[in-house]
Design a protein around this nucleic acid. Structure first.
Ligand SMILES: [Zn+2]
Ligand SMILES: [Zn+2]
Ligand SMILES: [Zn+2]
Ligand SMILES: [Zn+2]
Lengths: 173, 173
DNA sequence: TACTCTTTTGTTATGTTATAACATACCTAT
DNA sequence: ATAGGTATGTTATAACATAACAAAAGAGTA
């Protein structure tokens, strides 16, 4: 089997993976998608996507702005929010509602509402697509005559490595 | 069977229900819970809870502040955020992350993370507790070694009455 | 009662996130 | 070239949230 990048295990591996490959994969996928759709992944938009992919933890718009402003003094809030709007519209990033922050999409090929596991300790957010979760929500909504437009599932907790680390640290107490 | 207040059908009934009863039920339940716990549902906190229960649509903190300020000129952001902190801590209201807004809890007796169906048209948010949704999320998290602390499920879409109304309006086009 | 400790509320200031509105630059096609 | 659309620059402001300290109110005790 081929190595799967941008899955939950990779996200929570805390640097124990080749993150350069994550970024390359994501940027290449984004470029391909935009070309196919006739959308323009301009240098600015590409730069913002790159900044978001600096890690697996969701990034705030003003963090992006600060990073952007280092090489681009004219950058202002609309600069980054417009880029984010573009990236969101094309499914290249997701907004994490409970953090007011943005994270790169692990599977931008198909349209989807994301389900996220967010580690309270290391901050990483892993995108998962559990059809059972999806089906359970759809089923319940249908029972109530509710038409679903978008599902938000965000689970706060501790990833396995952080649990282990915290437990280890606890031994000393 | 007794009439069930504050369920999804009631929430989406668009005024076709006795909302006074919703409010009374909620305030009485809140008072009971606070008494039992030795927590103080002060006039201010009670007033904020009452304002949140003016409808079934989530309310922003600054909307609450404006409403509060009419009878209480000294009210400032901390006034309302403190009251909200209290109400959240005691499970009397929920925060809707995707709206930065707050809604009354329909079942404050037991601790729970809420699942919400939010109508994009009328704005109402119905709290549901589907054990299958809950179980599916827990199961998936467990498979990935992720320890769940809090689940956020917020579904945007159209409630049945709004669908019907929009479809009806569409006939004229 | 007077005291003291704790909780709640008042008050001012500031931090953080997001958008409105209009100007300019840049592509693309005729 | 030039007109129309898309993207970015720029300034201002709206919307959401918290920090920090002061004053008041409640609850228990001497
Ligand atoms: Zn990576
Ligand atoms: Zn972690
Ligand atoms: Zn009601
Ligand atoms: Zn509705």
């Amino acid at each position: 089997m081929t190595t799967a990048f941008n899955n939950a295990a990779t996200t929570f591996s805390h640097g124990g993976h080749d993150h350069g490959t994550c970024v390359e994969t994501a940027l290449a996928a984004a470029a391909g998608i935009c070309t196919k759709r006739g959308a323009r992944l301009t240098p600015l938009r590409r730069r913002v996507l790159e900044l978001i992919w600096r890690g697996h933890a969701p990034v705030g718009a003003y963090d992006l702005l600060r990073a952007l402003a280092k090489k681009q003094p004219g950058a202002a809030p609309p600069t980054v929010y417009r880029a984010l709007d573009f990236l969101l519209a094309h499914g290249l990033v997701h907004r994490i509602e409970s953090l007011n922050a943005f994270v790169g999409c692990a599977h931008p090929q198909q349209v989807h509402g994301g389900q996220f596991l967010i580690c309270s300790d290391c901050g990483a957010a892993a995108e998962v697509h559990d059809p059972r979760v999806d089906a359970a929500i759809s089923r319940r909504a249908a029972e109530l005559g509710f038409t679903v437009r978008h599902k938000t599932v965000e689970v706060q907790g501790l990833c396995a490595p952080c649990q282990d680390r915290l437990q280890e640290a606890g031994h000393g107490n």
